[in-house]
Design a protein around this nucleic acid. Sequence first.
DNA 1: CTGAAAGCGCTAACAC
DNA 2: GTGTTAGCGCTTTCAG
Lengths: 383, 383
Amino acid sequence: MAAGLRAAGPGDEAPIRAPLEAGADRPPARARPVTMKDIAIATGVSRSTVSRILNDAPLTVPIAAETRERVLAAARDLDYRPNPLARALRGAPTMLLGAIVRDITDPFFAGAIEAVSVEARKLGYNIVLGHAHAQATEAHALATMLEARQCDAILLLGDMGNQPRLLDDLRDTHVPVVALWQGSELDLIPAVNVDNRSGIAAAIGHLVALGHRRIAFVGGRLLGDIRERQAAYAEAMIELLGEVPQGYVQLVANTPADGEAAVRALMRQSPRPTAIVASTDVLALGILRGALVTGVRVPAELSVVGFDDIPMAAFTVPALTTLRMPMAEMAAAAIELAIGTTRRTDVELSGADVPRNGRALVRLFRPELVVRESTYTADPRGA
Amino acid sequence: MAAGLRAAGPGDEAPIRAPLEAGADRPPARARPVTMKDIAIATGVSRSTVSRILNDAPLTVPIAAETRERVLAAARDLDYRPNPLARALRGAPTMLLGAIVRDITDPFFAGAIEAVSVEARKLGYNIVLGHAHAQATEAHALATMLEARQCDAILLLGDMGNQPRLLDDLRDTHVPVVALWQGSELDLIPAVNVDNRSGIAAAIGHLVALGHRRIAFVGGRLLGDIRERQAAYAEAMIELLGEVPQGYVQLVANTPADGEAAVRALMRQSPRPTAIVASTDVLALGILRGALVTGVRVPAELSVVGFDDIPMAAFTVPALTTLRMPMAEMAAAAIELAIGTTRRTDVELSGADVPRNGRALVRLFRPELVVRESTYTADPRGA
DNA sequence: CTGAAAGCGCTAACAC
DNA sequence: GTGTTAGCGCTTTCAG
């Protein structure tokens, strides 16, 4: 019922911070944050003493209990909070981790950010999101953060192969960089990745066990991962049939729409495949829809396996059989690599260290096959 | 080829940053970033001169063209990059926007972050992600960033009603805070939100036009938004039928799983509803699956309307009729509110300013109905 | 036109 | 035990 307060219209130059207009019953926010100097003045000691007490750092340097109490009390009363900027300027870590993501909208990467963010917090780090923004963006989001070296480390989420300049920029930065889910192609920077080979092998093994032979592949994610998954598929097929069947490999963009298009193309082949391995759940979603739209029943006539186990995978119709990776562990491993210190004792870091032709290591984690409803024994006519 | 430059190891203390081990062919990363002082020394001028030139700020203060060139050249040669920390310390904006999100995994919020991030970048801001992390977390992620005042402003994405302390903490901070998609309940802070009322009205209007009368509601998102959407639903039903049919309102958590459960419950009612309005696309996804699993055909026997138009909504089976909001505009509006300055000229900011009982304003944007495949004329037997 | 100096908030070596 | 001093990298008077 109180009369609405109108935000003061910005005259010419708008004031930088629009105050909250709080002015509730609580004391309104002070204009200026409390500094150590304020405490020093309030308590009549020097700034260094305040600093020592507030950080109780030099336990070696005893402080009069009385002084200590007085300062602590003042700090509490004045609601003092250290200024991390100042600390950072002195060389302290900023406790910020940069995460460059290609596409947050991709449910897989949404999950990835979640995982990274959770693991980061366990170590007291916050995440600064850099949006590589598909191809479009100049790798400038990155450059900004890098060059700023506000971050203690940078995580690259997803394949940045489409960002030519980025990796160059990356090279001569002062910040450690680690790649996550980027495909193990790049060998200049340490990486954590999923074992695509073993994942695809598991998927195909599963299908073969169900009697499938005519297995197609829909590739999506650019560069790194797609290459590995596709190569693994090709290898498996050659071992299985002696060849990769003509027209059984569809390469499209990593969207449901393209997945849908891919099924249509696949269903035009003869003989038709009886199973599809999708390089991505997002693609698989489109494939599922494409199949239903085309009148192909899944899994009766067509089995579909995805990759990633995005949250939605359990709720498609039919629910998607897919490959799940240990997101949390992988995120933790990447962070550990990035900040170069292992403070965590709660989780055993696993993953195999794989030496590469270049210098940097890649740590590989094996995905696990999650069998749901989208795979079934091969239609006898098909196999 | 140049011999690798080894960072002078600081005695005992382990070096904070694990070097990249790059040492490729390019000059390896310098141990210490280049400062203005370096440039000053290299060119033989003073730091202040360097500063002036590099910021070409005081255009009022002329600088010798020759000096200018020399400094600029040196800066380029040495690959100088300003240290934003130092700048921030002096009071310059950090160009960081804090975004506190309840759940990145929710596809809607993934999209929201994307939108915010894109709009932020247009103004040169980066996003620092704070994860409120469902109920679990102490609103500490927030406190950290707030108290740190590293951010020029804070955006709250989604309803934080489950974070009691958070809003208190928020109140006496020095940073402007704006709520986005939080439900227009809170009146202490400026907010940007979708016009839930008009959205639900559009959805129900659409269903009614298709002949539906027995329309159920599945509520999901906590607090703010759910209340509004549910209230709007109730209002519409009362206007339509004179009452809200018994058992036609299901309140569940905002997950596909709960959506699935909700349909089952709804299908046990008699008479069965012929249409469902879901308060969220995520819920609607579950509803779609629940319907198919229960053998109820959508849209022949049951129409479903979602809310949010998440990317996946176009790829469900059947594709989801839903309400789309102008994400980019809303994000831009929130940012504008937060940083209190309108530098953007490319987009007309719209949204109606609605005065509230409290002090802060809420800016409301109307969603638009996107009709796809999940709604159809009411089954004559049902209506 | 340019330099010297002070200070942002905090820490650390070095006094007393 | 505590204060003084200097300096992190940068900006900004104020003097030349």
